[in-house]
Design a protein around this nucleic acid. Structure first.
Length: 451
RNA sequence: GUGGCCAUAGCUCAAUGGUAGAGCUCCAGAUUGUGGUUCUGGCUGUUGCGGGUUCGAGUCCCGUUGGCCACCCCA
């Protein structure tokens, strides 16, 4: 800033070019604060942004607790090996690695790109301490070195809800129910989003029924995952070696008949009155290898956004990741803050609900106006008393005109002002919305304002 | 990773190749104890960065960084 100002002032002066260059060089060697922006895909949270973020995180926690989920968390930096164990290959290239500058040759850490490995480790270590089923959630920030775009950043928050140690499909229904209520909590309706329910088991049976071998399953799933967008001929080509046609896959994909595995899940949602939020859609396969049963993704109805959330059952993963130490059935989902925030912004009712919540978060309830500067000590004592009683209170740090002080009170969102001045030991309480004033002894203030 | 569009004051945006502007915000006033309106005044720019063409570049050309959109990917 200073650099800019100096240059701007000097700009008009008629220096010879030589002098100008010297000056510029000297200025640039001084350590003026340069304008440094956030790295691509990272965000600053100014108070308004932070309030919006907290709205989402607070709601997530609120609804999760309503469903009996308990919050856990782990370290932001984990051993790189922990993540290599699960996925390996390309995903490792999309991680932010971390190492001490004093020991630059050894890069062993990574900023967490997901929660499942941490969760698996924690569960494996102390599984016996927790009654099953475990219903755990967390709201971590994740880091992924991908190209950013709408709905995707390099640091984001993601709600993770998992149920561990329950094989019954009632757990699947419970998980989908909390997912639905999570979005309902933001004022979103069946008009705004849909949970597309599918089943890995169904595709496994489809594949096996056509004579496919279990070891080819993953490749088959990858083809199915792309089949909806790819031309039928290409899918035909890819499926030929399995003796399947693209059309057969598409036919099954678009059949809306729930399999035996999905029927009880739908029933569980019906009993809760939530069936209007789900659709059977076998186009959902999920790219990951580890899903084993029910899988689902959530989309906005307008299809403007990428998926809001996704998850499913992964009964074998914990065993895999703990080298067989724990063998617990599990299921879970993740929901990111970026896409959700976009959808809230684009949905008037949801946006209004957020605005109402934000208004409650105002910085100040009561503004103490110091009308006579000589009364500042008394005003400070009063401010302290009100703050001790739990009120959000602010006041002018330096002398200011009364009109100015009321304007500030207004801008801070205060609902009431307390004027300290000539009337002392009485003070005036003013309801800012109605401009109604009452004079009360200052000792009675606490009682008068607590309502 | 590929292709297209874009980058000017804190914000939103102007400026036929010829002296960089407006609105909003912010700050200060309108005779000294009452707020949203109004009026007046003030601050604010290495036109993202680096090179090139030109007498002269915010404007044209090349590079680079960043952003948006569509593919790719998406734990």
């Amino acid at each position: 800033m200073l650099h800019r100002r100096i240059l701007a002032q000097l700009r008009g002066a008629a220096f010879p070019a030589e002098t100008w260059r010297t000056l510029n060089d000297q200025l640039s060697t001084l350590n003026f604060p340069k304008r440094v922006q956030t790295l691509p895909g990272f965000r600053d949270f100014y108070p308004d942004d932070c309030a919006r973020r907290n709205y989402i995180l607070t709601k997530w926690r609120e609804v999760a607790r309503r469903y009996g989920f308990v919050e856990y968390d782990g370290p932001v930096v984990e051993s790189l090996a922990l993540y290599e164990k699960k996925s390996g290959g390309e995903l490792v290239g999309q991680m932010f690695t971390v190492g001490a500058t004093a020991d630059p040759g050894v890069l062993k850490g990574a900023l967490r790109p997901e929660m499942t490995p941490t969760l698996a480790r924690m569960v494996a270590a102390r599984e016996r301490d927790f009654k099953k089923p475990m219903k755990w959630f967390c709201v971590p920030n994740f880091f992924r070195h991908e190209r950013q775009g709408r709905g995707r950043l390099r640091e984001f928050y993601q709600l993770n809800c998992d149920i561990i140690g329950e094989t019954s499909s009632s757990a699947d229904a419970e998980l989908v129910a909390v997912l639905i209520d999570m979005l309902r909590g933001f004022g979103l309706t069946p008009k705004d989003f849909v949970v597309r329910l599918s089943s890995r088991t169904a595709w496994q049976e489809f594949f096996a029924g056509a004579g496919g071998k279990p070891e080819d399953e993953y490749e088959f799933f990858q083809i199915v995952d792309k089949a909806e967008r790819a031309p039928v001929e290409k899918t035909d080509e890819q499926l030929r070696k399995f003796g399947l046609t693209g059309q057969a896959v598409l036919d099954f994909m678009h059949s809306k008949v729930p399999t035996a595995e999905l029927v009880p899940v739908i029933e569980g949602l019906k009993s809760r009155g939530l069936e209007g939020f789900v659709e059977i859609d076998y186009a959902i396969v999920r790219g990951l290898a580890y899903y084993t049963g029910v899988v689902f993704e959530v989309f906005d109805r307008s299809l403007n956004e990428r998926a809001l959330a996704g998850g499913g059952r992964y009964d074998k993963l914990l065993s895999l990741m703990s080298d067989g130490k724990v063998d617990l059935a599990a299921l879970g989902f993740g929901m990111g803050d970026v896409v959700l925030a976009n959808l809230i912004d684009d949905t008037p009712a949801a946006k209004a609900a957020m605005e109402a919540w934000l208004k409650e978060q105002r910085a100040c309830d009561i503004y103490v106006v110091i009308a006579k500067e000589e009364r500042r000590p008394e005003a400070l004592a009063l401010v302290q008393r009100l703050r001790d009683s739990g009120q959000r209170v602010d006041f002018p740090l330096t002398a200011a005109k009364v009109g100015k002080q009321f304007q500030t009170a207004e801008q801070l969102g205060a609902t009431r002002a307390v004027l300290v001045g000539d009337e002392w030991p009485q003070v005036k309480i003013k309801i800012l919305a109605t401009r109604e004033e009452t004079v009360v002894p200052n000792e009675e203030l606490g009682a008068r304002l607590s309502g």
